[in-house]
Design a protein around this nucleic acid. Sequence first.
DNA 1: CTGAAAGCGCTTACAG
DNA 2: CTGAAAGCGCTTACAG
Lengths: 314, 314
Amino acid sequence: VSRVVNDEGGFGVETKARVLAAIDQLGYRPNLLARALITRRSGTIALVGPDLTDPFFAELADSVQRVLRTNGRTLFFASNDHDVKRQTDVLESLRSHAAEGVILFPAEGSSASLAATARSGLPVVLIDNDFRGPWIGSVISELTLGAEAAVEHLVSRGRRTIGMAANVASITADIPARREHGYRRALHRAGFVPRPELVAYGPPTIEGGRAAVDELLARHCDLDAVFAYNDIMAVGALQSLARAGRRVPDDVAVVGFNDIAICAALLPALTTVRINREVVAKEAMDLLLRIADRPNDTHPTVSVAVELIVRASS
Amino acid sequence: VSRVVNDEGGFGVETKARVLAAIDQLGYRPNLLARALITRRSGTIALVGPDLTDPFFAELADSVQRVLRTNGRTLFFASNDHDVKRQTDVLESLRSHAAEGVILFPAEGSSASLAATARSGLPVVLIDNDFRGPWIGSVISELTLGAEAAVEHLVSRGRRTIGMAANVASITADIPARREHGYRRALHRAGFVPRPELVAYGPPTIEGGRAAVDELLARHCDLDAVFAYNDIMAVGALQSLARAGRRVPDDVAVVGFNDIAICAALLPALTTVRINREVVAKEAMDLLLRIADRPNDTHPTVSVAVELIVRASS
DNA sequence: CTGAAAGCGCTTACAG
DNA sequence: CTGAAAGCGCTTACAG
C-alpha cells in the first residue's frame, strides 16, 4: 500500500488497481503525522509575527499560503505580540509540532533568544532583520532605499518640513531602523539638516500613527509632510491631520509603507512604498529549504526590491 | 520519562529530579506528532475562509489564536478562495494532518461537499451558516438583526432611498442572505416598499463595493444611503461616492458590517455593525470540542449578538 | 515505584 | 513483484 500511495514503483499493475480500489472504497487518507515521524517531513511551515491584525501581515500570510500550495505544505499561523518570551514559547511549540521551518518577524530585542534558537534544529527565516547563525537566514526588503525614495519624492514636490512617524520599537531595538536611516539620508542629500524633533515615535498601529503625528503637529506648526513607518500608522496620520484641520495633500503630504490593499481606496489615496510580498514569500520558502538542507552553512541574506507608488496623498 | 513529563504520578521524587535534569540538559521537547499518533490529539485547530486578506478574517484569526493559547493548541490557517473544490482539498489535507477541528467560512455552494465531509471524522464548525449533520455545528452572529438595526438607523436619520451593496454570492447561493433579509424587513417595517433595483451586487471586496455603488448611482440619482455587505465593500462605496462627487454623510450615508479596525479611523469614520469576534472564536472552539466528544449528536446552533456602532458616516 | 512490552500508522531496507 | 520485519517517538496497560 505504501509503495502504491507514494508511487515508488516495484508493484504490479493489478496490485495497484486493487490497492487504489480499496483506498477509494474506504475513504483512506494517509496519516501525515505517522508519515512525518519516519520521513522527518511534517509538511508544515509557520508564519509568526507581532500582530495578526495588521493587514500587511494577513496579506503576507496569503502570499505564503499560495507558495505553500504549490509545494503541498500547510501553514501554521501565530503571533508573538511583540514579546520575546511569547516568541520563545511559540518557536518551541512549533519545534514540538515538527514544523519544517518558520518565517518570522522577530519581536524587538530577540537577538539573545534567537541565538539560542539557532541550536534548536528548527530552520528560521527572519523577515527584514539580519542575524547570522546556524539554522537562521534572512530575507530583507530594501527598506532604506524605499524610505529614501519616499522622502526624495516629498522633497521634489516642494515639501520642506518633513516629519516622520516612526516605530517606537526602533529606539531601544537591536533591530536597525532602516526606514529612519533612509529618511535621514534623503534629507541630508537634499541639503536639509535632519532635525531630531521631526521624528516622533509610536507603536506601529493606527493609534500609534495618530499619536505620533499629534506630537509632530504640536511641535511644528509648519509641518508640510509626514513619512510613516507603515500604512496603518499613515492611516493614523491622516486621522490626526483631519482632526487638526490640515488638508491632505494641500497642507500636509503623507506617505506610508507596505502598500496594503486599502491604500488605493483611502480618501485621499495613499502614496506608499510597495513591498513585493509574493517575492518575499517565495524567497523565504526557498531559503527555508536551503537551510533545512545545509543548516550550518552561512546563507547569504536575500534582498528584495521595493517600489514607490505615488497616489493622491502626496 | 513519559509519566514525569505528563505528571501522571506513580514515580519517586528522586526519579523525577533525574528525569527533569536530563530533559533540561538535553533540551528535550516531546515530539507532538508521536504523541498525537497514540493519544489521537494533535493539538492543532484550523481556520479556513474565502480570503485571508480581508482584515475581518485576520482579526478573527487573532481572536481564535488567543483562545487556542489558553488551551495550548496551535492554529492552521488556510483559504478556500471561494472555491468548493479547493475547500474540499483543504479539508482533506487538514484531516490528513489530524487537525482536531476546523472553523470554516464555507465557500458558496458547499452544501453537497459538506454533506460528504460530515462522514470524514473531522469536526467542523461553520461560521454564519446553518448546516446539520454529524461532525458539523454552527456559530451564527445575528446578522439579520444587525442589518435591521443598521437600516432602521438610516431611516431614523431621515434617509429615504436606501440602497444595498450586497454580496454577489448570495444570488446563487445555498446560503441564506441574512443581511439582505434584514435590510428588506426593516424597510418594510418602516413603510417603504423594498425596490429590487436598490440592491446591487458585487464580490465582497473593496472593488466589489465600488462597482455595486457605481451601479446604484447610475440607477438612482436620489440615492441617499448605502448599506454594505461588509466593511471593505463599504470602503469601496466611500470611494465610489467620492468619485461621483457625493459627500458622506451629507448627501449619502454609509453603513458597513463587521467593524474591522480601520472603520474608526476612516474619514468619515464608518458606522457599522460590530461582530463580537472574541465570543465567536470562543463559542466555535467550545462547540468543536463538544462535537469531537459526541459527533453524532445534533448540536444546537450557537447565536452571537451583534451591535450597531454609529459613527460619522451616517 | 520501576521497567519492559505492545502499539499508534506509517516507511524502508531486506528476503524470498 | 510481494510480504514481513524493524523502527520513527511517543503512551498505556501490565508485571514485578
